[in-house]
Nucleic acid binder design. Structure first.
Lengths: 311, 311
DNA sequence: ATGAGGGCATAAGCTGGAGTTATGGGCAGG
DNA sequence: CCTGCCCATAACTCCAGCTTATGCCCTCAT
């Protein structure tokens, strides 16, 4: 028994076991239903399970967290104060899960979909799932398919008639396509709040930025290319990491300043885990564009998605 | 068998069953490990499970999503393009889960904790979990406890010596406490991108806002109170809903304009599911403050947390 | 060329958690 | 007082995920 126990002396354990400390998505969904409906039985009915199942599931979630979440009474259940908080936090997980679901569904629905989207990686990663969630509220029964690739691949799909609408980032628009600017991907300089740059009065000079070792993605990544171009190939790495998340984690931990896409650090900025440092004389911006074959203005679901993406 | 099947004629199904369409957190954690390490076996070792378990779990995730995620070869596994995308989306869920975990742990760790925080609901809901995650990277072994309540309760705890640091929002600071402004909770007017207000040239006048029916939280909610005060008790409801999420969903769906805390809609704004409408002559802002008993300037972990929260 | 090693897959068996049905006890309102 | 809604407990079932035991594939160094 417990065969797992063998040999865990100096296990690294970076953030491992999170899944064991956090209730699973089903339990959270149930908790949200209880919060909304004010009754275990009601929530159970809504999710298509029985009342005892709901009762036991909530109870084991309370055991796992070590916190009482609901006040049960003979005429209903209400959240405790702690329960309300936990429910709010759970809601944010479920929102991320909804975006995941919308995206995953689009990756799968190849052929028979009514709206075929081709998008560059950055957009597909950060923006598209949110758009799809929004679109779903407007057109619940429209199947969407997604193909992610670089600008050239997006153009190819559109011109071959294999996609209805495309999204690319960058300075130039592939030939044969019309486009509309829908936003900007700005690279920003960020540091942990404790770093000296977080309190400087005047904006950072480009030369200063180029002279300072930064936490960066590896050479070859899109972000790195834009930065190198803007600085004239001068970006000086303090550490090179292979994922945006790793870079963010290092920056949050105070290892040094970094340059990241605004899209990647929205959450960190609003919670002040990272602070944006104004930069004086470099513009690190790329346009985000919706694209379609010249002349074939988007119609139907494509038009609807397009209108979601710009003001 | 399959007793669940009974009687589901006109089931409401608002967004039900999400948990069945999305892999569970353990599977995502595994996927992230595979992405990072480039091998199923390696990921398995890191999570303390066996290689066949990892293999089968990834495979069933691929079945569930209907998408191939990893390219298995006799010398390792790499993510497919779709897999990279899915992994990025999963990472966002895991980040939310990490915040959840940090918060939940603080709710539980009552007595023996080294840093006891008291916070108002808005801050505890939106900001604190992120701070705790950041703090964890700096002080991994510091137990933190959290007590959430209104301003009066926060003050009481601090003055009784039962909390080391507090956070409140609002215009006045409770007596007996020193404070530092760490941010602002601004209410902003938002609409779906398709709404006429999303394209107006000039900012909205207060009178115009007061005259337009809005999607709002129910009377008595904090947000509603601030809005009513700023407008002179005039806010006119189009729909009244009992949770911020419901309000957001209605606004995203295009039901009408709404007024929400900036903190609540960060994600929706960056993905352009909602658009912020500038307002001319009303300031809907409250300060967010860190507070502590007069004279007892925070030290140790409390000081560290405080420095995380402000620039 | 050949054996060692890392990596993945398949097969068979075990276990625990989540689900089910069945039943009982509190509290409100006609 | 009884009907209805709410929740809890008990006993049983079932499956997802785990383990161990094997085997095949490929690469690299001897």
């Amino acid at each position: 028994m417990g065969g797992t126990e063998a040999g865990q002396e100096g296990r690294p354990r970076p953030a491992a076991g999170l899944a064991h400390r956090v209730p699973d998505l089903g339990a959270m969904e149930l908790l949200l239903a209880v919060a909304r409906l004010g009754s275990l039985g009601g929530a159970a009915r809504e999710l298509g399970i029985t009342q005892p199942a709901a009762s036991s599931r909530i109870r084991s979630m309370e055991r796992q967290l070590g916190v009482a979440l609901v006040d049960r009474s003979p005429r209903g259940s209400r959240l405790t104060d702690a329960g309300a908080l936990v429910t709010d936090w759970a809601r944010r997980i479920m929102e991320a899960a909804e975006a995941f679901d919308a995206g995953a569904q689009a990756l799968r629905d190849r052929r028979d979909s009514r709206l075929r989207v081709a998008a560059s990686m950055t957009i597909a990663e950060y923006l598209l799932p949110g758009w799809l969630v929004a679109l779903r509220t407007q057109l619940p029964d429209t199947a969407v398919s997604l193909l992610a690739g670089n600008s050239a691949a997006v153009a190819e799909r559109l011109l071959a008639g294999e996609a209805d609408l495309g999204f690319v980032e960058g300075v130039s628009v592939p030939t044969g396509l019309d486009s509309a600017v829908i936003g900007h991907d700005r690279l920003i300089v960020v540091t942990a709040p404790g770093h000296p740059w977080a309190r400087r009065g005047r904006p950072l000079e480009a030369a200063e930025l180029a002279a300072t070792p930064l936490i960066l993605r590896e050479k070859g990544s899109g972000t790195r290319q834009v930065l190198d171009a803007a600085l004239g190939g001068l970006a000086r790495p303090l550490i090179e990491l292979s994922s945006t998340t790793a870079v963010k984690a290092a920056a949050v931990g105070g290892a040094g300043p970094s340059v990241l896409s605004e899209l990647a650090v929205g959450e960190e900025l609003t919670t002040r885990r990272l602070v944006s440092v104004p930069v004086a004389d470099v513009v690190l911006a790329r346009d985000l564009r919706a694209v379609w074959p010249t002349g074939h203005r988007p119609t139907g679901p494509a038009r609807q998605l397009l209108s979601l993406t710009r003001a």
